[in-house]
Amino acid sequence: MAFIELSGVNKWYGQYHALRDVSLSVDKGERIVICGPSGSGKSTLIRCINALEGHHQGTISVGGTALTSDIKTVEGVRKSVGMVFQSFNLFPHLTILQNCTLAPIHVKKMKKAEAEDLAMSLLERVRIGEQALKYPGQLSGGQQQRVAIARALCMQPDVMLFDEPTSALDAEMVKEVLDIMVDLAGSGMTMLCVTHEMGFARQVADRVVFMDAGQIIEMNTPDAFFRAPQHERTRQFLSQILH
């Protein structure tokens, strides 16, 4: 069975039908890139996987656990799912190191020294170890996003969700974040990335998922997806973003 399994998922915001019969299965180690126009439901989709949004119909299971509204189930799933947000969402009142050790200490009950060792090794990995004692407000956007990746990795998750991780960044900083994500993909991490970075999709994705109006319109290997899109809507979208 696939590690993440969505089947017939529906979600509404009030009367607005945001996700429509979405089914998707992701194997361990797979890298999925989800793209589509804004409002197409791609963020909602990945936010349902760690229950930041509840879904109304269908089933979502992560690592064999079906998501319910039970808080213990939700917290259990979240432990194994890391998430990186468009606006970084670092905790501004904590240092970089404290941002990274918070969840290991308070959720995993890890010893402080052990959590700090782990955090430092991951901060080194995202090449930001020397900033560990600064506060988020003292770092550039690209640096903050790399810290956010390290913070999520500190929980040693099985899956990483990326919600437009480079959309809030200046052009100069996009590459430093993408490099880290490419590096992470190379290490065998299961990843679901909502992104408009088609170069990244070509380079690392096993599958590209194209969404529009709450539905999955097309899903294929990057090579087939970019070379020979099948659906009219996909061709239209790609002609808009690839010049």
Binding site: L52, F85, N89, H93, V107, A152
Partner: peptide
């Protein structure tokens, strides 16, 4: 910002830890 609570949720912090460590200090 909403994202503060969401980031804490995504890290699997309990409601009380989130409130005590993230929400209230800020």
């Amino acid at each position: 910002h909403n994202g503060q609570g969401e980031a804490a949720d995504a890290l699997s912090l309990s409601w009380w830890s989130k409130t005590r460590l993230i929400i209230l200090p800020q």
